[in-house]
């Protein structure tokens, strides 16, 4: 079976050769994922499986967005938090007019 991630060799348009400074929130997400690994809670292979298991629509949201979703899925799978808790916390932050990536 070919998964959503398995795109080597597919036709695509011209290269868009660009690079941006990593956004602070995504850097934070990377740091969280790194901390989870260094504490032995998760492995890179589990993370990869979660990325590769995302539905096409979620996978296509973007690189940083799909990593966020995969981290969330993996943490839920590990019983360390639930997606519902995360969404609830986001709603609380919005209600409090919170900023982000602080």
């Amino acid at each position: 079976m070919v998964g959503v991630h398995d795109i080597g060799g597919l036709p695509a348009g011209p290269m868009i050769i660009e690079d941006h400074e990593m956004e602070p929130w995504f850097k934070l997400l990377n740091a969280i994922a790194g901390a989870m690994r260094s504490r032995g809670h998760t492995t890179i292979h589990e993370m990869r499986r979660c990325l590769e298991s995302l539905p096409q629509g979620v996978y296509d949201r973007g690189y940083a967005e799909r990593w966020s979703e995969a981290v969330c899925d993996l943490l839920e799978e590990k019983g360390l938090l639930t997606k519902a808790e995360v969404l609830e916390r986001i709603a609380e932050m919005r209600a409090a007019g919170g900023g982000g990536a602080s």
């Binding site: 997400l29 969280i32 989870m36 995360v86 986001i90 932050m93 982000g100």
Partner: peptide
């Protein structure tokens, strides 16, 4: 949404 999600995950963990 994802900006807040990163903060939420960190805080919860």
């Amino acid at each position: 949404h994802y900006v807040l999600m990163a903060d939420a995950i960190r805080d919860l963990l």
